[in-house]
Design a protein around this nucleic acid. Structure first.
Length: 685
DNA sequence: GGCATGTGTATTTTT
DNA sequence: TACACATGCC
């Protein structure tokens, strides 16, 4: 396509960003204002101007986003630059750079990247060995330790400050927490493990090193960062350090869509970007090309009530269109029925399933709907929630593979050993000590895998067979030259089969997953590439690895709002719009939390192109699994007060609010008082 | 006494 | 799903 043609399809603001010369550029891009198009065009324009693609660094939030932008850019200039541009998430780019430059920083050439689950496991090992797990002591649990640590690192804030503000109930234990962190760090180093935070920290360290930093920065003539409102302090500093040699940097984002503060992201970074880079050109994109005017009006009304935001008002030319719909349902089952009906009705009108999405606050909010979709044979894929890699049996296999790859990987050993029969935490520790995993054997003697076979000989009879079987399986994978990754996965799956059968229900499905894993491994050149890839870009769902959905398959998208970021669909169904679910009552402790939930709700609404439906189930059950009828009535989400509801068409499903069954506040209070008095009498009060 | 294993209960969002 | 806690084996 000739340059002039595609440049003309940009509006003046987009064009200003795309045509910007050198120097810092910040683009505040509202929802649906052509952010992806602008970034892709900018990449294309740079290449046209003669910047070699491999000297462009494009940082995005997901693999999917990178792929889409580079595909679009390639199409614009009529040449495939997808494999040349350095594109990816902060974490995957860090991994790539550190495989090259890490050794100069003292990193072992073949480190193992561990995901959050593994990092939590390692915290647990340190915590329990330090004797801090005793009963009665109010010491933070492993997940809490991991979040404190991660926040400290990502926000670059001193431990005590983090504790005081975000975890006040742990403040008294600051010294012990610092000690656990020390142990955690020491073990990661000894075992050649890098967690997600380390990837950023070491990249930052490399980029700020006086000798090495400029070499790395110089690799790139231009740096572009997407979703900048969701970067945290360490990422912002990395971007700064990467521009030590010039100031060619473009950041794009929308403070109204900042939804990752739990990961220490702070929209202040995009708002203060012009202070960081002197002479920044600021471009604001306000024309929305995605949604109809009625949908935009409702979305604008929701976000207008946020406390702090960069002032901008989205507008659209698409003045035609249906008003969004608010569907009040009596029960969650009514909601599931209503969603299925609406989805099928849209399909009748010619909107395919792939052009529709159901969005929700948390992974399990779609449980009941998934059952109904199954019953009606409506195919779907789910993003967010439990991922393929988080399924227990998949983690089991990955632990085995990781030992083969890095025989000093303690969390992998611990997981592997404790899945053997008769081995609990204590025995696992003994074995790890015997084979020299920890403390790491002096002078890198025989590999712990080899020593495991010897240890098996000395073990009591019951343990012997278990350990010998494990040693054999690992040994087959750790030989030189290494068998192909898929062969290794198959060998380990064989070892794992009886264990899966013994420990889990529906073993057939799980064994099928392991086969899928072996098939996926066959596409990789090496075992360590495969492991790293899976950790940094986990398959979104079980079917993802097994059978990438064919282009001609039609399926509905189910997604958490977080995972739906950047997406758009002709029809969007937002479910569970009840206060306590959306906003999640976990997040409503303070005003900042509520604000973030509001932005999240805004993100959900702004995904819609033509049709928007919001569903509010009135009645919720206290215990999902139980058969009893304990239920309560939830109020509608606080983000849809009456004034906002007026922008919606309203409809009711199920038996809603007749005179007989409507909750009557006075009656409810009186009944509760009566019940409480009865119980209090039973207690003798 | 130390340890593995069974049982009941509460669950946010992700690189 | 995974945790805390209880039970019961060696």
């Amino acid at each position: 396509m000739a340059t002039t043609t595609w440049l003309e399809s940009l509006n003046p603001a987009q064009r200003q960003a795309v045509d910007h010369g050198d120097g810092p550029l910040a683009v505040i891009a509202g929802a649906g204002t052509g952010k992806t198009k602008t970034l892709a065009s900018r990449v294309a324009r740079l290449v046209e101007r003669g910047v070699p693609p491999e000297r462009i660094l494009l940082l995005t939030f997901t693999r999917r986003a990178t792929h889409e932008m580079l595909t679009r850019a390639s199409r614009l200039i009529g040449a495939d630059i997808g494999g040349k541009v350095w594109g990816g998430t902060f974490h995957s780019v860090a991994n790539r750079l550190l495989r090259t430059y890490g050794e100069a920083l003292g990193l072992p050439p073949s480190f193992t990247v561990v995901d959050q689950d593994d990092s939590v496991d390692l915290f647990n090992l340190v915590r329990s060995e330090a004797g801090l797990g005793e009963r009665g002591r109010r010491f933070p649990r492993k997940d809490t330790l991991a979040s404190i640590y991660s926040r400290m690192v990502n926000a670059q804030e001193p431990l005590r400050q983090v504790l005081k503000r975000d975890f006040p109930w742990c403040a008294a234990e600051a010294d012990a927490i610092a000690e656990v962190f020390g142990g955690y760090i020491e073990r990661k180093r000894a075992q050649h493990l890098l967690d997600f935070d380390d990837l950023l920290l070491f990249w930052h360290a490399a980029a700020t090193e006086p000798d090495l930093g400029p070499i790395i920065a110089e690799r790139f003539e231009h740096v572009l960062v997407d979703e900048y409102q969701d970067t945290n302090a360490i990422q912002a500093e990395i971007v700064r350090a990467m521009r030590a040699t010039n100031t060619n940097v473009m950041v794009v984002g929308d403070d109204a869509q900042a939804i990752y503060s739990f990961r220490a992201a702070d929209p202040e970074h995009i708002l203060r970007f012009p202070d960081q880079f002197e002479g920044t050109t600021l471009v604001v994109l306000e024309q929305n090309y995605r949604s109809t005017a009625p949908i935009l009006a409702a979305s604008n009304d929701v976000i207008a009530k946020a406390r702090r935001r960069y002032s901008k008002e989205l507008f659209t030319d698409r003045t035609e269109g249906q008003r969004p719909e608010l569907v009040t349902c009596m029960t969650e089952q009514d909601q599931s029925d209503a969603v299925c009906d609406a989805v099928l009705a849209h399909r009748e009108e010619g909107i395919e399933l792939r052009e529709q999405a159901v969005l929700f606050r948390t992974g399990h909010h779609s449980d009941l709907l998934e059952i109904e979709l199954g019953r009606r044979n409506i195919p779907f894929v789910k993003y967010g929630g439990l991922k393929f890699l988080e399924a227990a049996h998949v983690k089991d296999l990955m632990a085995l593979l990781r030992i083969a790859d890095n025989p000093y990987d303690e969390p992998a050993w611990f997981r592997t050993l404790t899945m053997l029969e008769g081995v609990g935490p204590a025995n696992a520790r003994r074995v790890m000590a015997a084979v020299g995993v920890r403390p790491r054997a002096e002078g890198d003697g025989p590999s712990p895998i080899l020593r495991l076979a010897e240890a098996a000989e000395d073990a009591p009879p019951l343990l012997h067979d278990e350990l010998a079987g494990l040693a054999a399986a690992l040994g087959d994978c750790a030989v030189e030259p290494a068998p192909p990754p898929s062969t290794q996965v198959e060998r380990l799956a064989e070892f794992l089969t009886p264990i899966v059968a013994r420990r889990y229900d529906s073993p057939d499905v799980r064994l099928g997953d392991l086969e899928a894993l072996a098939a996926a491994a066959s596409g990789f050149a090496s075992r360590s590439r495969f492991i790293t890839e899976l950790v940094l870009d986990p398959a979104a769902h079980t079917g993802d690895l097994a059978q990438p959905p064919h282009l001609d398959d039609d399926f509905l998208t189910l997604s958490t709002v977080h995972s739906a970021k950047g997406g758009e669909w002709r029809a969007v169904h937002v479910i569970q719009a009840a206060d306590g679910m959306f906003p999640s009552d976990m997040a409503t402790r303070d005003a900042d939390g509520v604000d973030e939930e509001r932005r999240l709700f805004y993100v959900a609404l702004t995904r819609a192109i033509d049709h928007l439906h919001v569903y509010f189930p009135m009645r919720y059950y206290h215990y999902r699994e139980r058969r009893d009828d304990l239920h309560g009535y939830a109020p509608i989400t606080r983000f849809l007060p009456p004034a906002t509801q007026a922008l919606f068409d309203q409809r009711q499903v199920g038996v809603v609010a007749t005179e007989d069954n409507a909750p009557r506040p006075g009656l409810v209070t009186a009944a509760a008082a009566k019940v409480d008095a009865g119980i209090s009498a039973l207690l003798g009060g």
